[in-house]
Design a protein around this nucleic acid. Structure first.
Length: 568
RNA sequence: CGGGGCGUAGCGCAGUUUGGGAGCGCGUCUGAUUUGGGAUCAGAAGGCCGCAGGUUCAAAUCCUGUCGCCCCGACCA
């Protein structure tokens, strides 16, 4: 490609709306442009990267025995009503009507469609297992699209759906996908971790997320420094901290006046009681019932764990007014002692001696509270977020570390949830009708592009991994009015193209600095500079985007050298 | 939806407090000189100041409404 003809509008300044580095660089380097909130146009270079990622995914899906198909984006409401998700999906689904006032959705995912298709045409165990996938735009009317491609309302996704006769079959399909995903992210050259995840609303039991590690990723993950355990914090179980049986004596309960002191921090400062010696109490609304949850003052509640424990559909923190009505005291003066609501305490609470908490009376707290003597909870449960330093729940030897990640892939065992709802059944060997056992496996293609940039950049711009770079090589004649430079550049350009190497020649009548800056910004992995100094020796300069080193090489060896780099 | 902020030239912004000339930098176009890390000089083009209504002799500026965008929270690949 000739830079003079390439549509790649680079920007010198950082667009004001871009917050994270991947968004800034993709816009600045001329890969994407926003069309409206959460919806982007992929310019030529951006589209090339997308296609490269898609191709790697496609190859690995096919290698795993899957078949690609294409499903509609516009989907009729009836299908969604059949699965029961028309109502559940809520505002996140883009909905539209046709001229006859019939309802449709812009597909946020395709379980309904694929299950209906398979239901229609697969009836025998002989036709299973079946692995079908699609790569296409999906739509979710996100509450808050953000971070450019990271969380869009229109995004490109690969989704594969597996259909098996039984759990064992599902296990095999799941494993296949797990391995395929590992190969994919290895080939994409991204640093990632596979973590245990909460399946969430999609249903099913087992689930793994593929997280590209990045400092401003949206997900928090924990991993063990001793074994290979890792999980999303949402999921990571917490152990009750080794109870150091202190000889501490149990003191008498004491009520203290604490006017205006509403936070753990207030009490910590006023009475010199460390946060870990206090208990905080949160009131939650769970499908209509209010419950109180208690945990150590320095801990964070994990709402997903709580939701799973309470087995409720809707869960949110009660507002001030609701708290006041039901507890007789405001937020900040609550505690388990004398609490009318059901009280759930975190695993750590039973071990705490003589702790401090609210007295369920405004401006009063209790000191020297002890579980058992002063109150009896409804349950002792794991409801806190794991934090750095916690004991590993698997090997029990190591300590948990934390990291942030971008969720680029997610695989689920769905079981028979959708096949039952949609009536996707088959006849087994004995002529018995059974629901198919399903799994679904997603990869955010456009998000992966953002994740790659998030992980591979420096102060000058993007550093594409060779496997997904829009072009592998850029040739820069320092001064294209010097014919010997241009001729050499053109010669190398032809040679490389002959060998099938994707190459840009920067034939623009620009100063060298401009070309260098643009080349770095758009992140082409291999840069070949043709300048007067090296030309005298019949050489050109070769530099890898991810290294500082510049190599001087004979023009005659350049093609082989480039091929070496690409294959290494 | 709750909280915060912003809409002025393609991009980044000043001007709005205290009403009266629509400006700056980058980019774009023309010409000249330049040509190894975002050149210099000279000239030029480019604006429903988000939109609608109101106040006023006069509105980018004040008032009302509305639309859009960004950030923080709940949601998620």
């Amino acid at each position: 490609m000739r830079a003079s003809e390439l549509f790649c509008p680079t920007l010198r300044e950082v667009p004001s709306e871009a917050e994270v580095v991947s968004h800034q660089l993709l816009v600045r380097a001329g890969f994407i442009r926003k069309t409206t909130a959460g919806v982007y146009t992929y310019l030529p270079l951006g589209f090339r990267v997308i296609k490269k990622i898609e191709e790697i995914v496609r190859e690995e899906m096919n290698r795993a025995g899957a078949q690609e198909l294409l499903m509609p984006i516009i989907q009729p409401a009836e299908l969604w009503q059949k699965s029961g998700r028309w109502d559940i999906y809520g505002d996140e689904m883009f909905r539209l009507t046709d001229r006859h006032d019939r309802y449709f959705a812009l597909g946020p995912t395709h379980e309904e469609i694929i299950t209906a298709i398979v239901d229609g045409d697969v009836h025998s165990y002989r036709d299973l297992p079946l692995l079908l996938y699609q790569i296409q735009n999906k739509y979710r009317d996100e509450i808050r699209p953000r971070f450019g491609l990271m969380r869009g309302r229109e995004f490109i996704m690969k989704d594969l759906y597996s259909f098996d006769t039984d759990e064992e079959g599902l296990e095999i399909s799941y494993k296949k996908m797990y391995e395929a995903y590992t190969r994919i992210y290895d080939r994409l050259n991204l640093k990632y971790r596979v973590v245990e995840a909460d399946p969430g609303a999609i249903g099913g039991n087992e689930s793994h997320e593929f997280m590209v590690l990045a400092n401003n990723g949206e997900s928090q993950i924990v991993y063990c420094d001793n074994c290979d355990y890792s999980a999303n914090v949402e999921k990571a179980p917490c152990m009750a901290e080794e109870m150091q049986e202190t000889d501490e004596e149990i003191h008498d309960l004491e009520k203290i006046h604490t006017p205006g002191q509403k936070t753990i921090q207030d009490i910590a400062e006023r009475f010199a009681i460390p946060r870990r010696r206090q208990v905080k109490t949160l009131i939650y609304w769970a499908d209509g019932e209010l419950v109180a949850v208690c945990l150590r003052g320095d801990r964070e509640l994990n709402e997903i764990k709580l939701k799973n424990i309470l087995k409720c559909n809707q869960l949110f923190m009660a507002d001030e007014q609701l708290v006041k009505q039901s507890c007789g005291a405001g937020v900040g003066s609550l505690g388990p002692v004398g609490m009318d609501l059901k009280v759930y305490v975190d695993l750590e609470v039973p071990a705490m001696k003589n702790f401090t908490c609210g007295a369920n009376e405004d401006d009063y707290h209790f000191m020297n509270v002890n579980m058992g003597r002063d109150f009896v909870p409804e349950g002792v449960v794991d409801i806190r977020n794991a934090v750095e330093g916690d004991q590993c729940p698997v090997c029990r030897q190591g300590c948990l570390k934390t990291a942030r990640g971008i969720e680029v892939g997610h695989i689920f065992k769905l079981g028979t949830k959708y096949s039952q709802a949609m009536g996707a059944t088959f006849l087994d060997k004995n002529g018995q009708e059974k629901p198919m056992v399903m799994g679904c496996y997603g990869i955010g293609i456009s998000r992966t592009m953002a994740a790659a940039v998030e992980q591979n950049n420096d102060e000058n711009g993007i550093i594409w991994p060779l496997s997904i770079a829009p072009y592998q090589v850029i040739i820069i004649p320092v001064n294209n009015r010097k014919t010997e430079q241009m001729d050499t550049a053109e010669f190398i350009y032809k040679e490389l193209r002959k060998r099938g190497i994707e190459t840009i020649i920067d034939d623009r009548d620009e100063r060298a600095g401009v070309k260098f800056k643009d080349a770095d910004l758009i992140g082409i992995p291999i840069k070949i500079t043709v300048g007067p100094k090296s030309l005298q020796a019949n050489q050109v300069e070769v530099k890898k985007r991810w290294e500082d080193k510049v190599e001087m090489l004979d023009i005659s060896t350049i093609t082989e050298k480039v091929i070496d780099i690409i294959n290494s």
